[in-house]
Design a protein around this nucleic acid. Structure first.
Lengths: 263, 263
DNA sequence: AAGTGGTCTAGACCACCCC
DNA sequence: GGGTGGTCTAGACCACTTA
């Protein structure tokens, strides 16, 4: 009993992952194991450094990441605290989630009915949005998305066929388009999105079993990689009364910076 | 001509703001001024350190922030690049914005018509959401929000009166509720939000000049501080055909981290 | 092989909280 | 004043890109 040991598995300077990520994982698992409970204060930074055998800069990089994830909070002269929302917070993504991931998180079974899956030339508008030449072969995937068999939304995805070879051969009744993209080596970094409320048109209404004119929640994503190259354009129309988007906006963590008044 | 000078205003180690924030502002303004154009490569880190007279760690903190904001991208052995989306990206907030801030960013004039501003006891549901006792005095602020005089949305805000003393005396026709909260020392850290499409009810329809039953975009925020204490509950209902929410979802920034296979 | 970003360290000083 | 987080530095080594 020399004191505390954070975990049986220590941080290793060898190869595997950066030290700060190991620290993130270690602290996360301590919380999951219940060693650290919501509201509890963590040991001081300098003490943690000693325990984990890492420098303070590295530790703070890990702690910062955990704040972004909503797992921890810091208070200047007081210490680091485990967020009280704890587990619940994990259900408020501020990151992009695929429909499949959302379903998994909610414990429901996602399925799809494929309405269309073919490759045809891109129109002018599509080409412009995806930064490709008009006429470029475009894979079009239209699906009705269901949760536990209930139709929730219609998803219309458009992706240049060249980016995901043989994409048209996949069975999207069960497979995730995002997974296919990852397998093809595409690096999804960001999605610029618009969200609006519109009236259901006849086509949507029919497939979702709605009355035309009823509200639908329309999300449009343009998924891009690290160099801002468009990878995928996707429009999802959710039945207004069957879906509620959940997210969590951070108030830019570091400082407030209300726009300067005049001058 | 000894070479380049980043700007007439150098970074000052005196008091004002942290060095890394000054660096963020400086680089941002260089892009705004057109000195750095979308797609351009920045000078290498070590060179920038010299120019700005800051350490590499500090510079990298600034660069990391700019990546989060979508202003820059990095590529391992190659360099730092100005995001091609450039100016457009600034209009894709991934942070929580007040209506007033949104208007300012878009160059429009936000105004409000106050429908209600009074203090009454909290109901059971309200109390539960805000983690207060039922019957606690609650400030209720209902406003029609306009952009350049056009009604866009109805905003219903609920905040425990004790958190913002004398809140009922403010003139919310011109003032921002978020500003008042900041002045009262409240630290807004996050907003857990739901977004859905609903039909306009008679009350909403009347004030927005819509037909009842038309789609409205309903955003509900629960604004909390660093310790997850609820500060404010707010419901904003936007006219479906007059507003489109824009945001940008990051795919978990740092790394992909598909679960480890085995071991 | 040279250039450039990514990670890491040890130590310093400041600002805030609480006794 | 002691404890604690926030910022900053100078320098080192590694990993990736490009030629």
């Amino acid at each position: 009993m020399t004191g505390e040991r954070e975990s049986a598995v220590a941080i290793r300077a060898d190869h595997p992952e950066p030290l700060w990520i190991q620290a993130v994982d270690l602290i996360t698992s301590e919380i999951a194991r219940g060693v650290l409970k919501p509201g509890m204060r963590l040991p001081p930074e300098r003490e943690l450094c000693r325990q984990l055998s890492i420098s303070r800069v590295t530790l703070r990089k890990a702690l910062t990441k955990l704040v972004e994830d909503g797992v921890l909070n810091s208070s200047h002269g007081r210490g680091w605290y485990v967020a009280t929302a704890g587990t619940a917070r994990k259900e408020w993504p501020n990151s992009l989630e695929s429909f499949t991931e959302t379903a998994t998180r909610m414990g429901l079974t996602a399925s799809s009915v494929v309405l269309r899956a073919d490759i045809t030339p891109a129109s002018l508008d599509e080409a412009e949005e995806l930064s490709i030449a008009p006429g470029t072969p475009l894979f079009r995937l239209d699906r009705v998305r269901l949760l536990n068999g209930v139709p929730i939304a219609i998803d219309q995805a458009r992706i240049p066929e060249a980016l995901v070879p043989n994409v048209a051969e996949a069975d999207f009744q069960t497979e995730s388009l995002y997974d296919k993209m990852s397998e093809a080596g595409l690096e999804i970094v960001r999605a610029d999105s618009t969200i609006e409320a519109r009236e259901a048109d006849d086509h949507i209404a029919k497939h979702l079993g709605l009355q035309a004119g009823k509200p639908v929640l329309v999300m449009h994503h343009l998924v891009v990689d690290g160099l801002d190259k468009p990878l995928l354009a996707s429009t999802i129309q959710y039945s207004g009364d069957r879906y509620r988007l959940r997210t969590s906006f951070a108030r830019s963590g570091t400082f407030s910076r209300t726009a300067h008044p005049g001058r």
